[in-house]
Structure formats: C-alpha cells, structure tokens
Design a protein around this nucleic acid. Structure first.
Lengths: 203, 203
DNA sequence: ACAAAAGTGTTAAAATTACACCCATGG
DNA sequence: CCATGGGTGTAATTTTAACACTTTTGT
C-alpha cells in the first residue's frame, strides 16, 4: 500500500526579531556547514522526518542556530521543482519570532536588505515578505512575541515603520487602543521628548 | 546526504462546481476503492510522487474522478499527526474548479451539507471553507472558472448566495462593474422577471 | 394587472488616511 | 526657550452595508 515515496519536504523558517534600539527588524540566517550550498547563507531549514509535525521540524531548524522561538506559524508551501539540487523537495515556509535578548547562533541580517541566499530562499523571502507585514497587529501571537510583553508607543511606531514602511503616530495609537488584549499603562520617559505610555498585553 | 525519508505527502483537492440552475455549489468526493477507509467517501487525493509538482498531483487526484480542472490553487498544509492510519502524512489542501457541463466520475455533494468524510477531511473542509468563500470575486481565475465565460446577473447572485451566504443584488452589481476584466453585455431573458445583462470576461 | 427579477438611488456606518495642533519632557 | 517625540482633534476619502424605489419582463 506504499507506492513510490514522495519528494522530500523541508521546513524553512523565516525567523525574525525586533531590535527596538536600532528600530529594525532582522532575519536569522546561517552559513551552511554542509553541501549543498556549503558556506553560503540560507534560511534555517531541515528535512521533515517521519512522525514529525511542521512545528517540531521548525524547532529543529532553529536549533541549528541555537534558538528557541517565542511564537511560530505557517506561511506557504513552495514546490519549485528545481529548488534543491539534490532533487525534488517541497518547502513549507513558516515564520518564527526570536527573543532579541536571548543570545543565539544566528547571523542576523536586515529583513529588507538581506544578502543573497542559497536554494530559492531569495524567492521565498520575496513572496512571504508581504505576508509577514500583514501579520503585524492582526496576528496577536506574532505581534506579541515581536514587540515584547510591554512596549512603548515609540517601539510600536518603530516596529510598524520597519515592517509596514509607513506609519502615522496618531492613527497607530488609536489602532492599539482598539486591540483586545492590550491595555495602556503609565507614561515612562525614554530619552528625549514626551514620555510615551507603556502598552501591556492582558491575556 | 539523504537522511531518514520524510513523511508522506498527500495532495487533497477541494473540487467545486457551480450548478447555476440549482443555484448551488457542489463539492466533488469519491468512494474510496482501497484501504484505508475503503468504501467511504473522501476528497480526491493522491500521495505526492518524486519529481512532481503540487499542481501535477492535484491533476492526478482529479483523474481518479475522471475530471480535469479549469483552474487550481493552493490553500493550506495540514499536519495533524494521526490523520492517516498508515502513518504520518502531510496534507496539502488545494482548490480546483470543474466544469458543470463536462461529465465526470465524481460524487457531487452540497458544499455546505457534505456527508461524513474519511481521514480528517471533515476538518480540512471546515477550516478551508471560509478561505474558499474569500476567493469569490477576488481571485479572478477561481471566480471565472466557477461562474463561466459569460454569466447573467442572476447567476452572480446565485453563486454569491451559495458561497458567501448573503447578497445584495444592487451592491453586487456595482461590485461587478468595478472588476477589471469584466464587461457588461446585452440583456438576455431567462424566464420570469426582467432580463439581466450578461457579463463577459475580457482578458 | 401582477409577480418576479434587475437595476438605480440614496443614505448610514465604518474603516482608512492625512494632517494640524497641543502636550510633556530633556537640554 | 527650543528641539524632540507623544497624543488628541478633525476632516476627507473610501469601503461596506442596508434598503427603498423604479424598470422590464413573463403570465
């Protein structure tokens, strides 16, 4: 009852972190130790093993850069036939958010100015980039992991700027107020200018 | 360089057709000739073979019901570990639209009142059902295949009613006028009531 | 004439976008 | 006082939704 085995399936992770100080969102890549594409940069990815869920494989991929995700989710499945020189391989693209505090072994590159990547990872990043932007403030686990348990109005502006490109401080402030599970805290000074209120997740 | 092979990957197709006369959208299922779930109804699906794209596998799945799709697309990938009694199997859910004219070997069931299905196909249908609704009038290849090359205002109302549940004839008419690639034709009588204009795809 | 279906008009409500202006703090 | 960032106010625009009313056909 078991015909010709299927193609291999890889789970490739677009792992992000938000550097509030630098006001940038970064992408985790790593230099491949083995062929194919040995020595080149690539998204962390692994071949899906038998009896493994997509999330478990994603965790294994992130272990390659000594990291554990704060939150994860699925994006798209790619099947470009020649994407892997070893032969036909499916790629399930997923997202993950890593902590900017916890040290890890990843090479962090700007999400919007990445170096050339191995396999078809440039294309994967290209088509999933807008999907990642669409998650902000809509997918709450994604947003919460990215921005942290508490954050200032300035952080929110910086993150939105980095991921969406455009922001209006005032409108963003009102949008935050409409989000269920977010509550306004006290104002806290943070350098120059008027101190911003702290936002806190309630759930 | 080839570690433990991955899980199997199945491509399962949510194949739809629009019966304009009955004003319903139907889903293609078929009675499984072989184990597992021999004799039960299921979505057409096949195991992905080496060197095969998702679209090709989808075509093979539809060949099981002697059908060829007018249009296809990807939905989501499911990885419920126990979804297949043979062992871990990934399922890539895709959509397809079949012609209501061309005869095929499928069993057609109402999209919103399907019988119990094998595997976790009930759950797959449940979570992809809203995604299918979201494609109408937005994904043009999907919509065009479903509604046909030319269609009347009544068809548009019936299809929207079937897929979205609610419709306002007037608003829908204006929405159609805003779609690039659709042009209004002549009015054509079709039974009782005022004849509706025919809509035609231009591209 | 009447019922059925198509199409237009109109308005309300909500979401998106833009931008002017005032507030609070550090230097 | 001034620069810097935070926050509110206000209005234009667009989208979504709801519904009344007129038009055109078959019976």
């Amino acid at each position: 009852m078991s015909p010709t085995p299927a193609t291999h399936v890889s789970v490739d992770v677009l792992a992000l972190r938000f550097d509030a100080a630098a006001r940038t969102v970064e992408l985790a890549v790593h230099r491949r130790p083995l062929d194919p594409f040995a020595g080149e940069l690539a998204l962390p990815g692994v071949l899906l093993l038998a009896d493994e869920t997509i999330a478990q494989a994603g965790h294994r991929a992130l272990a390659k850069v000594d990291a554990t995700p704060l939150a994860t989710g699925q994006l798209l499945t790619f099947d470009e036939p020649n994407r892997d020189p070893r032969g036909p391989t499916l790629s399930i693209a997923t997202w993950a958010v890593l902590s900017p505090q916890r040290p890890d072994g990843a090479t962090w590159v700007p999400l919007d100015a990445p170096p050339p990547l191995a396999f078809d990872h440039d294309a994967i990043l290209g088509t999933t980039r807008p999907l990642l932007a669409g998650l902000l403030w809509r997918d709450l686990p994604f947003t919460r992991a990215l921005v942290g348990e508490t954050f200032t109005a300035g952080d929110a502006v910086a993150l939105t700027q980095a991921l969406l490109g455009r922001v209006d401080r005032g409108n963003l402030n009102r949008e935050l107020a409409r989000i269920d599970g977010l509550e306004r805290g006290e104002a806290v000074a943070a350098g120059a200018g008027r101190p911003g209120r702290v936002w806190r997740w309630t759930d």
